[in-house]
Simulated assay, not measured.
Amino acid sequence: MTPPSAAPDIRLLIADDHRLFREGLKALISVTGGLHVIAEAENGQEALDLAILHDVQVVIMDIQMPILSGLEATKRLLALKPGLGILVVSMFDDDDNVFAAMQAGARGYLLKGAAPEELLRGIEAVAQGEALFAPSIARRLMNYFSRPTRLPPTLLPELTEREREILSHIAQGETNPRIARRLELSEKTVRNHITSIFSKLQVSSRAEATQRAKEAGL
């Protein structure tokens, strides 16, 4: 299938510490009219420096990169170039990273493995000042903001809101698969959150975490 033509003359920078991903993205873009990869960066500091040096219009930004994270690079770039379009393309689909990217100023958030047409549409969207999110992320954002109540941030403030939510489900005796289904997360993401919860609360079991939750009033 031939990729659709993009808006004319969009200057791009690809920031990702995985060379194979950059090469694959460049190959896709090379057959798309109007898109030009001007520079590549393998860490956040390079992304910051090269985006300014080459005056690009769109940065395709990974989140986890060495030296400077993609989120921090996004914040700094937009402080210097407010009109720059940042499209985050990441393997992480959890709320914390999605909301952090939005707060940093990213206009779009897609998952690695997205269809070529979706990636090209995302590039065009952010170049034109629009927002575009992966369908699964857009659904979760809608569900999140439609929830009638949220756990007060004063309860266990060392935890993120998502971690407090998962802890409340743990305290109700729910299993990881059930929590994943209820919150529309992968089981791996739930496990990662639980590991973080245990570390922050300095507990080693679900029973201890449950006790901490009850003491905090969750």
Results as ranks from 00 to 15, higher is better:
L120I: 15
Q128W: 01
I166D: 01
A106R: 05
A138F: 06
G122Q: 11
A138M: 15
V126E: 10
G113D: 10
P148H: 04
A134F: 05
E117N: 12
T154Q: 11
I123H: 02
R107P: 12
P148E: 11
Y109P: 03
R164L: 07
L156M: 12
S146H: 10
T149Y: 12
S146F: 05
L155H: 13
A131F: 14
S136H: 09
T149G: 01
E161F: 06
A100H: 10
R150V: 13
E117K: 10
P135Y: 11
G113W: 09
T154G: 00
I137C: 06
T149P: 00
L132W: 03
P153Q: 09
E161N: 08
L155Y: 10
Q103D: 14
A104T: 02
R162A: 09
R162S: 15
L132C: 06
E161R: 11
F145C: 07
L119I: 15
R164C: 00
Y109S: 12
A106N: 05
R147F: 01
R140W: 08
A138N: 08
L120D: 08
Y109C: 11
R162E: 13
V126I: 06
L156T: 05
L155M: 15
L132N: 06
M102K: 10
G105K: 03
R164E: 08
G105I: 08
V126S: 11
A131L: 08
R162G: 08
T160A: 04
A115H: 15
A127E: 01
G108W: 15
L111T: 08
K112Q: 07
P148R: 09
